[in-house]
Structure formats: C-alpha cells, structure tokens
Design a protein around this nucleic acid. Structure first.
Length: 485
RNA sequence: CGGGGCGUGGCGCAGUCCGGUAGCGCACCUGCUUUGGGAGCAGGGGGUCCCCGGUUCGAAUCCGGGCGCCCCGACCA
C-alpha cells in the first residue's frame, strides 16, 4: 500500500527522483505560465535562511543593498556588444503599455549591469567615491526553451552584486573575494563543496573580461554552476561613462565587478544531500532543525504538555524546534512527512518516555546510514542537541567532499579516456589544455563534457599535466571537465 | 526549433482498438474506534473526459483542425 508513496529511487531515474522530491517535499510547483515556478512556504523558508546568511556576508564585505527597477530600456542592453549578443535570445521585451505601443521597447531585466552602471555614473565623481559596492535581491527573467524547477526557470530569484573600483587590480581582487564568499557559504552553510576556478573564454559571462565560478558536483556526478563572479574590466564603464577623477587629478574609467547566486542553489541542495527518502537539510539552513512528534497523548494531556516544554527549552537555546501537534495524523505518517522535508532531527515523546524522563531521537542522516533511533534522558537530549546539529552539519560536508573526490579523475591524457568516463559514471576529470578553443569544442562534441573551469591552485593536481587533452599541443594549464546542468 | 509521448474528480491512472449509465487507487469530508514507522470500519462530496467542429439515435471512444504539457536533442544561472 505504501508503494506509490515512495519516491522513484535515484539509481532508477535521477531526474524523476528530483522532480518528485520537489513536489513531495512541497518545495515548489509549476506556475500557470510556462517555464516559471511558484516557490512554496517550505522552499521559500530555506531560501530565506540562505539569503540571511549571504546578506550578512555581503554586509561584512562592505556592500549596501539597493533596488533597481525591473524594466530596462532596450538601448541600454544594446550598448555593450558581447552583452547584447549573449542575452538577446533570452530577452523578454515589453512593447506595449497603457494601451499604446511604447516608443522605446523595455526589457525585463535578465541582469542589471547596464542600468546599475548608468546610475553609478551619476553618483561617482572622484576616487573618494570609490569603491562603490552595491547589491540587490531581485527577480530576473531569461526566456528558456527548456526549464527545470530551480535549475532553470524563465524567472528566478537571485542577488546581483555590482561594484566599481579605482584600479583593475582592486576590482580583480574583489571578484575573487566574492568568489571566496560564495565558496565559504556553500561549504559552511549548505555543506555543498564546490571546485572554484576561472571560466574559459567560451563559457564566461557575456560582457565580462574574466568569469570565475563555483562548480558543485551533484549525486549524478554532473556539475552545477552554483555561483559566478565576474571581473568586467572597463567594458561597461566605457559604455555608460562611469568616470572618476583620480588622486592625480586625471579622468579615468572605473573598473567593475558583478557576481550572483540564485535559487538554483536550492536545486544544488536537493541534488547534493537528498536521498531516496526525500530531502536532507543542513541544520544551518533548515527552517526547522528539530521536529517534536508527540505519540499517543494521555487523558490528562501530559504527553503534549511535555512535548511542548521540550520545544520551548530548545527554542530558548536558539534552536529552531517545532512541535507537530496535529491530531488527525498518525505518528508514523508525521515521521515520513518530516523526513521527506529533510528536517535533521526528530524527537518522539510518548507515555513511556514520560514515565522514564526520556525521549526518542532519530537523525535524518547518521554516519553509516543506519536508521536506528536512540533513547535518551530528556536532560541529555536538551544538553547535546546543539552539538548534534553541528555534527550533522559537519557530517554532510564530509560526505559531500568524499563523494566529490571519489568521482574525480586525474592523469587523463586523451579524449578517448575522457569519453569512457563520461559515458560511464561521469565525474570531474582533470586534464592538461593548450588553451585552444577548438579542443574545447571537440571534447564537447565527442564526450558531452564541457570545460567547467581552470581550477584554483588548491584543486590542481600535484603535478601539472604535460600534454593537452587534444593530443597535439603542449599543455598550458590544468582544467576540469564534466557534464553540466 | 527538430524527434517521441501524453491530455479523463486535487494527484496517479484504467476505459479509447471494438461508440451504449464515467470507473479505480491515493487525497478530501463526517462519525466511531485508534495512535512508538504511511491506522481501521462505516457513510459522503467532488468530472465542461484539453478545446472547436464533423459523423451518429447516441462520442471520453471514430474523423478533421487547434491548444497545452512532459521527455530526448541544439542554446542557457
């Protein structure tokens, strides 16, 4: 009977598992408009926790939040040549308003570099106004032919940071600082360890001089580009006249950066930690960290009373605890529901526990994946809860790092070998590369893998490969290949 | 945009070949009994069968046209 209540297994059909999980965990739903989604309360609560953590990190690195309008004049988008070419196919354009055709079409923002720069040009006079570091939390729209909840929808939520600096060095440095912020956030909060590095010319942001990215490995061994940080050079400054007077009194163009992460991170979260029973949430971003389920209340209501007091005591410790007091569901059905939704720890309280001052504790994930419940003294449960949540968080990160390393291949020297890995289990493959874009193209065509990034030093192999994967030339750098979302 | 599949209570489907009272599971509502891993019994509510047209005494079913969604490819956070 419980058969159709179970998720499709990851091993059977990863993609079906992903979709089902989103519906069953009540994270999101399809909207009436093709390709866009509704984020439901549980999914949005997770996003809010992520936003809060990121926002604090942005503030700590000297940024201020702003809001720029949804509509951007078409002419703005067209100013930067590469930018317009990159975005043109995805633009949603407003041509009519107030019952009349507009004189100039307006674009629903696909990203806001152009409008932000146009305003910054007005606000910046001298080097004393620099650096200017702004961020906004907004929705953006890019018309997509093929969409998937969280991973690729026509409208999505994100933050976009935009900064102006007096020197190229400072801007480049800031680009990397923000890449680091993203990486720390993904590791410390989401337990989703990315490989970070530089994008190749063909993969970089439309309009950027250089793009850096965080590439997180999903459980199907595909890479998810989970955050990007761009050094824009003076490309936008020159088009939008972002000028300042330097200390020496000279007029100069500002140097820009932009960087963003989106609700796509939620897709990454699902595919990093989710299992065949449902979502698994890192405690730090879980809307509910501990769910308390009362089992069979007594006539005097003492079970519910005890459950309630445990909940208050956990809350007093700053733990996000909730009591599930719904009386029309059986305890078992609640267990499944909260597991599906990924709550890290569950406490069960019943008449038996009342007598012995104990409580039954079940963790969503435990080392070794056993599903054993523990019986604890109530005092001990209260005393150790915070540490358990920390350990849980740490355990998820460790598991994810191990999984990434187990599916990483080094010392691969030719396309055939790479192809063999890609047509099998997949994963991250490190090889040498001459820097020749035709090699990149060939690899893509023959293996389905794309050049994810030129990794930062700490990810590189101890010995740099000597041969380019293309075979003919010498290797100039080490790169990471993977199939990608 | 090319290839494939599907549109039937909220969800998942059967019924379509061979036209004849619109069904099943889950969910939902009411009551009683239950409650330590998806409760049981009894009763109940809910459908323009994607849309438009045609054939027919009669269409979910046959014919014509349209629309939508999903999957697979090229483009993308």
């Amino acid at each position: 009977m419980a058969k159709n209540k179970q998720l499709t297994k990851r091993s059977e059909d990863f993609s079906a598992w992903y979709n089902e999980l989103i519906f069953r965990a009540e994270l999101a739903d399809h909207s009436p408009v093709r390709g866009s989604m509704v984020i439901r309360p549980w999914g949005y609560a997770i996003w809010e926790n992520m936003q809060r953590a990121l926002d604090d990190m942005f503030k700590d690195t000297g940024h201020q939040n702003v809001y720029f309008p949804l509509l951007i004049p078409m002419s703005f988008i067209e100013k930067e040549k590469d930018h317009v070419e990159g975005f043109k196919p995805e633009l949603v354009v407003v041509t009519h308003a107030g019952g009349k055709e507009l004189e100039e079409a307006l674009v629903v923002r696909p990203t806001s570099e152009t409008v932000v720069m146009s305003m910054m040009a007005k606000w910046i006079q001298s080097y004393r106004d620099l650096p200017m570091k702004l961020n906004q939390w907004v929705n953006v729209m890019r018309w997509e032919l093929r969409t998937r909840l969280f991973l690729r929808t026509s409208e999505f939520l994100w933050q976009e940071g935009h900064t102006v600096h007096a020197t190229a060095e400072e801007a480049e440095e800031h680009t990397r600082v923000m890449l680091g912020v993203y990486r720390n956030f993904m590791e410390d909060w989401m337990a989703m360890p990315p490989v970070t590095g530089l994008k190749s010319e063909s993969e970089k942001f439309a309009g950027a001089t250089r793009s850096y990215s965080c590439e997180a490995m999903m459980q199907d061994n595909k890479a998810l580009q989970a955050g990007t940080s761009h050094f824009l050079g003076q490309n936008f400054s020159r088009q939008f006249d972002v000028k300042f007077q330097s200390e020496e009194g000279k007029e100069e163009f500002g140097w820009n950066t932009s960087w963003g992460v989106s609700t796509r991170l939620l897709g990454g979260l699902i595919m990093t930690h989710g299992d065949d029973r449902g979502l698994v949430l890192p405690p730090k971003i879980a809307p509910t960290q501990v769910i308390i389920v009362p089992v069979k209340d007594l006539d005097d209501g003492s079970v519910l009373e005890k459950a309630n007091s445990l909940c208050s005591e956990l809350k007093a410790q700053g733990i996000r605890a909730e009591l599930d007091s719904r009386d029309f569901l059986s305890p078992g059905s609640k267990f499944y529901e909260w597991e599906r939704k990924g709550v890290p720890i569950r406490l069960e309280v019943g008449p038996r526990d009342l007598e012995n001052n104990q409580v039954v504790l079940a963790q969503r994930v435990v080392p070794g994946d056993s599903q054993k419940k523990e019986v604890l003294q109530q005092s001990e449960a209260l005393r150790t809860m915070s540490k358990r949540l920390d350990d849980f968080q740490e355990c998820l990160l460790k598991k994810a790092v191990i999984r990434r390393e187990e599916n990483t291949y080094r010392g691969i020297e030719n396309i055939d070998e790479l192809n063999e890995i890609m047509s099998g289990s997949g994963g991250y493959v490190y090889t040498g590369w001459s820097g020749d874009p035709t090699v990149e193209q060939t690899v893509k065509e023959r293996t389905g893998a794309t050049l994810r990034c030129i990794p930062e030093k700490e990810f590189r192999s101890s010995e740099c490969p000597v041969r380019c994967i293309g075979g003919e030339k010498k290797s100039e750098m080490e790169v990471v290949w993977a199939k990608a979302y």
